[in-house]
Design a protein around this nucleic acid. Structure first.
Length: 341
DNA sequence: AACGCGGGGTG
DNA sequence: CACCCAGCGTT
């Protein structure tokens, strides 16, 4: 175990990535980076990290902000509950800890949006607590080192991974070691075609010995994405557009969207569009992880009985927390209907 | 244990 | 197309 640990730390010291959040161990910045990077690639998250620490330089700033402004800074990154929980946790830290960041895994995991991984990352990097931060990279690396045949989602396999990760963890440099595994997973032990010949622990990797590295990790089959068919309605009145805030429990909870109809099938969707002559955008596809949104955009002049919603100018809509779909459609509209605005 | 939750990159 | 990404909260 000590050999594995030394080999990985030594590799890290020579090959670690220079990342924006690695210039400081301030737990506030580490926290922001970790939440941004949940299920998000480094290249995609980095601009949002800069934006967030620029708009909210301290935990006091974040706690004092309106949730709307946190969501606005988050606009375009996805998984918006992360932004709501970030804001909520900032207030929890102000109220429950007097604005002082909790310094250990047990306290951190109680905060909104901080689970086992994020608590381990913050406590190890900022406070030197020896606890393994197990993310997708670590799961992949350990499942290969041990050549684990069971699905990594199962509690059994997860336990094996957790115990092994904590066993090889450097107790002197836990933060560095956790980040070393992530860099190793990102640069060498990649999901497809891992670069085993460059791996510092090639000799002890059982999957490598069995030539099964491409079969690891074993994962349970995922549910197929479902198709949905949406027709967005651009309802304009005196240069203002009607926007509706989404309800709790729906996709894009709390975010603002053009009012839309959902059609039950592709046939209904297409026949509805064929009946319309006010189509602004031909059918397009917006792919999410678990659903495929087929959507079209049309101008609706007749005023349906909308009881809730806000009439807003394009500029005001750009400053609204919305899914990325909205600014895209809005730009399209502004180009086509410039005289109206 | 299963599911919902975004958006983008890659082979 | 499928798969994955510095996961978490809810059921």
């Amino acid at each position: 175990m000590a050999n594995i640990q030394r080999a990985i730390l030594s590799w890290y010291d020579q090959n670690k990535r220079e990342l924006p959040w690695r210039t400081s161990k301030n737990p506030y910045f580490i926290w922001i980076s970790e939440v941004v990077l949940q299920q998000t690639r480094v290249e995609q998250g980095a601009p949002f990290f800069y934006r967030l620490i620029s708009v909210f330089p301290s935990i006091e700033d974040l706690a004092a902000a309106d949730e709307k402004d946190v969501l606005l800074a988050w606009k375009g990154l996805g998984y918006y509950s992360r932004a709501r929980n970030l804001h909520k946790a900032a207030r929890q830290i102000m109220e429950m800890h007097g604005g002082v960041f909790p310094t250990n895994h047990t306290e951190l995991i109680k905060l909104a949006g901080i689970g086992g991984y994020t608590a381990a990352a913050i406590s190890s990097i900022s406070f030197n607590e020896p606890v393994a931060a197990i993310d997708g990279n670590v799961i992949r690396i350990v499942s290969r080192l041990l050549d684990l045949p069971g699905p990594v989602e199962s509690a059994q396999t997860a336990k094996v991974i957790k115990e092994f990760a904590n066993e090889i963890l450097s107790k002197n440099r836990p933060g560095d070691f956790n980040q070393a595994l992530m860099d190793l997973g990102s640069l060498i032990c990649t999901p497809k075609s891992p670069d085993c010949l460059e791996c510092p622990v090639m000799e002890v990797c059982i999957a490598r010995a069995n030539n099964s590295q491409h079969l690891r990790p074993v994962k349970k089959p995922k549910k197929k994405a479902v198709n949905r068919f949406l027709i967005f309605k651009i309802i304009i009145n005196q240069g203002k557009i009607l926007m509706v805030q989404q309800q709790k429990g729906s996709i894009w909870e709390n975010l603002h969207l053009f009012p839309f109809d959902e059609l039950p099938s592709e046939e209904a969707f297409l026949s509805e569009l064929a009946r319309e002559n006010k189509v602004l955008m031909e059918p397009s596809l917006h792919v999410l992880s678990h659903q495929r949104l087929n959507y079209a955009v049309l101008i609706s002049e007749n005023k349906p009985p909308i009881t809730h919603g806000n009439w807003l100018t394009p500029d005001e809509i750009h400053d609204l927390p919305t899914p990325i779909l909205v600014p895209r459609i809005l730009t399209h509209i502004e180009n086509q209907l410039a005289p109206l605005f």
